[in-house]
Nucleic acid binder design. Sequence first.
DNA 1: TCAATATGTTATATATAATTAACATTGCGT
DNA 2: ACGCAATGTTAATTATATATAACATATTGA
Lengths: 70, 70
Amino acid sequence: MKNKFKTRIKELRARHDLTQEQLADIVGVRRETIGHVEHGKYNLSLLLAHRIAQALESSIEEVFIFEEEN
Amino acid sequence: MKNKFKTRIKELRARHDLTQEQLADIVGVRRETIGHVEHGKYNLSLLLAHRIAQALESSIEEVFIFEEEN
DNA sequence: TCAATATGTTATATATAATTAACATTGCGT
DNA sequence: ACGCAATGTTAATTATATATAACATATTGA
């Protein structure tokens, strides 16, 4: 599991006028979890990624930018 | 984290002529892990989902079918 | 400036993904 | 029918995502 990713959560949150806490409530996790995900500290689960993308009206690929190694 | 998902891994594996073990090798996990994911036993990580999708030349959304609850 | 709200951050605890190993079953080729 | 490769499955262990709590640092508005 070498590669990493960046996220556009912060940007999309702003566009939707959502605080970390509001987004956390919507997707059913804690505020800190959203913060950690935004800062790339967690390799979050697929379901959480999906629910975040959903809440931000985007696809997973739009929210999470994967850095290819090759 | 209520919702679940189905996967098209088995079908896509067949199309790409890959055994569970070959796919596991490519994405860097164990054969059993692929099996468990195929059968929906794990809520796998986003990175693993991405690597599986990549190996199957598909997007995450094509490989993993999310069941909405509402 | 003060208070309130949002975010950063860290330590510890808990839930669960993923590993490992072992054995069972299924299917396919010869 | 036999043997082998692929897959199913389960139990125990390890690694790590997420929860929880606590406090610190912005930032914004009255």
